[in-house]
Design a protein around this nucleic acid. Structure first.
Lengths: 346, 346
DNA sequence: TTGTACGCGTTATCAC
DNA sequence: GTGATAACGCGTACAA
């Protein structure tokens, strides 16, 4: 457990100065003779030299790191976003630190603070916290931030979001076009921006068609965490929906996992999907094609969102004066097999 | 975008020295008068002081960070492991950096190097790389490592793995106990330790019962990446299996997602699960309960593995002399509804 | 082309 | 109980 080798050690071994060694090993454009350069590189390799980023970053005041704060990587939607971010960051020699807020505002704030302390200059966040004072303060110090998937009311923050309302509208419209008139909607608590938008899309489509909305919303008291939770939530809400309105022919769920729950509940009651009841989800996670029947859903370009968010952030990190902007990604209907046409209406 | 405030700034404002400020703000046990302490804390807060971890870590030579290298967070198995690691790390005031090797040995090596440069003193890795020279070198410099889910033949590395062989044995035995004698096995390429172990467990159970193994292995040429890939792989292998042996009554898949593919393929051929064919998976991911029929499987305690791996690593990081050890986690049968008894055999 | 000297923000070691 | 000061490893003016 001896002391790690530094540029000074290399310098001694090479009969050079630490400055020259630094210039060579950090690929500086500063002129160094070819012979010297080669010699230093050789010796560094022989000595198994490992640069200390802490020293370098302290000096240059740039950590070449961006942070991402999301609810949880266990949600395939977010893990896909992150893979996109990481891929893009790597291409630009940036590193990514991922933090799971687990829907806990305190945790989110703590991670935000940690990022700042680690000299992370840019973050991508899907925020859950209401209190933006810390974030505001960090923005003042020059931190760059991009909000994804969730709206943050700060002028300095660029947004990149999905057109949730349109997605909700598309899904509902799709059902209507298949002749459905009794369409139920199940949703987790309408607290997040995304959830309310999808809901609004549903309402709009129903309204335009002169249909009556039937909605079941999960209660706030429950802690929404993990796929199993949402799955069970979907089951329960479907049961409640059926109890209220037995004449329903279609159900729209606010996310795919809840749709899985809906389908499961229907099956266990002897109702067949889509023969007896059509179901449509929202998100477009891979598992949707694996269940039975394969789930028709609205796909959010999650991977692209990660790539785009990262690119935008890196741009901002280069020229600080880049202005605030807002990008909206469009949803896409993925037709699989959980929807059927209602007889006699087409 | 002015210069960030440092302890020196605070010191000036408080008419104190930087040393005293440091002692207060870093919660040192060093004695400082209550009045001074309070004053400094107040001023630091007013000035929105954010400690620079780079400076602190450079000085103390400890980054309070552990790294995790896994194939991909898009695999729910690994994301569960990571959540366990993160949870445990947080309790001990450690941070976690997650790296997705994406099954790419070069990427894995690059991330390993990056960790070292960032002065990460401990890593948890599910390795894919064959070349361990870099890792060996890092171990010599005092880095601690824990291998999960995958065996690494290095004496200095503690292992924490699952009893894959036993899991494979249990799954097969479970089918046999339900009267099955024609049991097929589908697996991704048998390159990773875990895969071969499960396979061995299958073979052992078949052998003990005097049954003939029927195996389909995915080809090496294909890049195994993403859930959809394994799903399709499962479909294809199931089809091949049926072509070879139409008298099969049960299929054991080496992981849950492949089992989903198997079930999907069977359904599309008009075979009903479990009435016409029983299917068992391996991993115990949450989505297994959401498909139809709910998948009987072997559960690996992934979350516990993350917690355990992190605890073990943190222990090692405290007292360096802790010796190499190996922990083996036990599998558990999760009975759901994808298996039926073969008539007349029970 | 190379070397010297300093500073990045922090903590540890001394003195007082 | 407090304050100078020297490190930690590195990059970079500036001098040579």
């Amino acid at each position: 457990m001896k002391r790690p080798v530094t540029i000074h050690d290399i310098a001694k071994l090479a009969n050079a100065s630490a400055a020259t060694v630094s210039r060579v090993l950090s690929n500086s454009s500063y002129p160094v003779s070819a012979a010297m350069r080669e010699k230093i590189i050789r010796i560094a390799k022989e000595a198994n030299y490992i640069p200390n980023m802490l020293g370098k970053q302290l000096k240059t005041n740039s950590s070449m790191t961006i942070g991402v704060i999301i609810p949880s990587i266990s949600n395939p939607f977010y893990s896909s976003v992150i893979l996109g971010v990481e891929e893009t960051a790597r291409e630009h020699n940036y590193h990514v630190i991922v933090c799971n807020s687990l829907q806990n505002p305190d945790l989110e704030l703590m991670y935000l603070q940690t990022m700042a302390e680690k000299q992370v200059k840019g973050i991508i966040l899907s925020s859950i916290a209401q209190d933006t004072t810390l974030l505001k303060g960090l923005l003042k110090t020059g931190m760059q931030a991009i909000a994804i998937d969730q709206r943050i009311d700060e002028d300095e923050i660029s947004q990149i979001e999905f057109n949730y309302a349109k997605g909700g509208y598309m899904a509902t419209k799709h059902l209507i076009e298949h002749g459905h008139t009794q369409i139920g909607y199940v949703t987790s608590e309408l607290d997040r921006h995304s959830r309310t938008e999808i809901y609004q899309g549903y309402l709009k489509a129903m309204d335009e068609a002169g249909l009556t909305p039937v909605v079941e919303e999960a209660k706030a008291s429950e802690v929404a965490f993990g796929a199993s939770f949402e799955f069970n939530s979907g089951k329960r809400l479907a049961a409640q929906l059926l109890k209220r309105r037995s004449e329903l022919t279609a159900i729209f769920a606010c996310n795919d996992v809840m749709a899985f729950g809906v389908i499961h509940e229907l099956s266990s009651r002897g109702l067949r999907v889509p023969a007896d009841m059509s179901v449509i989800g929202f998100d477009g996670i891979e598992y949707g094609e694996m269940i039975h029947p394969p789930l028709t859903t609205i796909k959010q370009p999650d991977h692209e969102m990660g790539i785009l968010a990262c690119k935008l952030l890196l741009d901002k990190l280069q020229d600080k004066d880049s202005s605030q902007m807002s990008v909206m990604l469009q949803p896409r209907l993925v037709e699989r097999a959980s929807i059927t046409s209602v007889a006699g209406n087409l």
